[in-house]
């Protein structure tokens, strides 16, 4: 059902029609409603969208970090020839931290406060490489150096509370890259950091991606970050990917009205005094799975055709959009 895309890089991760329903006390939430996402080898792939659109849920579902007892999951997550959704618990543990690793929004609470940071890095290495303690320690010291934490010998024994937010996130990155994973999922890695530190951390991620030929799935709500570091980008809305394109193409030629709205909402210098552009309305509550395009209510170009959910269409090589309007509005009133 998904049209074949011409990706420059061979696909490393291919998510097809991923659906996750959350059972909550207030009813079923259709958190992910058919996500299609492909990450190429060595590529930095951004995922953008408003709060609650399913970016983080997608990230967590890949590593199956969400509470599986309270979720109903369907669809495929193809990674290195296997469907992650079908792996056993033990097989999944072998993937986590070794082939795919993850860093999170708030490094302060994402590190164990009672273990020194070196130990937290070495633990991952010991777990996956089955090497002696001293070797793991040496490797951890090397990793600290690699992510720019010096002097590593001194930092190794320090506890998370003794480090700044930026250093904590670097430690998280060191943990994540410890076993040379093929894919790093970064869930809003810079949101909790100062702007100057943000830039450094992004620079580090970009450098590591190049050095280690590691793909990064970068979850963010910040288009500036996309412009800076991403090769490709997917825009999510209401649990679906509405547009995927090269990072440049998305700024030059945003096809989905939601993408256009988001890009127009970026404040620009020299427009002081003018009201900031906003998208009217709020994202829909995901308590029901409607038949219509979920963006219809907020869309400036909505028409009769939008009562039926649009399929994703490839408008140009590598540029996929899920909107009825891209063909020139033929179905419009």
């Amino acid at each position: 059902m998904t049209p074949e895309r011409t990706n420059p890089a061979p696909a490393l991760l291919k998510i097809r029609d991923l659906k996750v329903d959350l059972m909550t006390v207030r009813g079923i939430v259709y958190a992910l409603d058919g996500v299609d996402l492909t990450v190429g080898a060595g590529e930095i792939h951004g995922v953008v969208g408003e709060s609650g659109c399913g970016k983080s849920m997608t990230a967590k579902s890949i590593l199956r970090l969400h509470n599986e007892r309270r979720c109903r999951t369907s669809g495929e997550i193809l990674f290195e020839g296997r469907d992650l959704n079908r792996l056993s618990r033990r097989e999944m543990e072998q993937v986590r931290g070794k082939r795919i690793s993850m860093i999170f929004q708030d490094p302060m609470v994402s590190l164990n406060p009672l273990l020194c940071v070196g130990e937290q890095i070495a633990e991952t290495i010991r777990r996956h490489e089955r090497c002696p303690k001293e070797a793991a320690r040496q490797r951890a010291l090397q990793l600290l150096q690699q992510v720019g934490i010096t002097p590593p010998e001194k930092r190794y024994g320090q506890y998370p509370y003794e480090l700044s937010g930026g250093l904590q996130q670097r430690v998280m990155i060191a943990i994540a890259i410890a076993c040379n994973p093929a894919l790093l999922i970064a869930d809003e890695p810079t949101t909790a950091l100062d702007v100057t530190i943000q830039a450094q951390v992004l620079e580090l991620l970009k450098r590591l991606s190049g050095e280690m030929a590691m793909s990064i799935l970068l979850i963010t709500h910040n288009f500036g970050i996309v412009a800076e570091v991403c090769d490709r980008v997917s825009v999510m809305y209401a649990g679906r990917v509405v547009e995927t394109a090269d990072a440049r193409a998305i700024f030059r030629n945003p096809c989905h009205p939601y993408t256009r709205g988001l890009i127009d909402s970026i404040p620009r210098p020299g427009t002081r005094g003018e009201a900031l552009h906003t998208i009217p309305g709020a994202p829909p509550q995901l308590y029901e799975r409607g038949a219509a395009c979920p963006y219809m209510a907020r869309c400036p170009r909505a028409g009769a055709a939008c009562r039926v959910r649009p399929e994703a269409v490839e408008v140009s090589p590598g540029h996929v959009v899920a909107c009825h309007d891209v063909k020139g509005g033929a179905d419009h009133d």
Partner: peptide, 14 residues
């Protein structure tokens, strides 16, 4: 707590 999620994401058995 997030650090527990981190540990799971590192591949540490539950």
């Amino acid at each position: 707590a997030p650090y527990a999620t981190t540990a799971v994401a590192k591949g540490i058995p539950y």
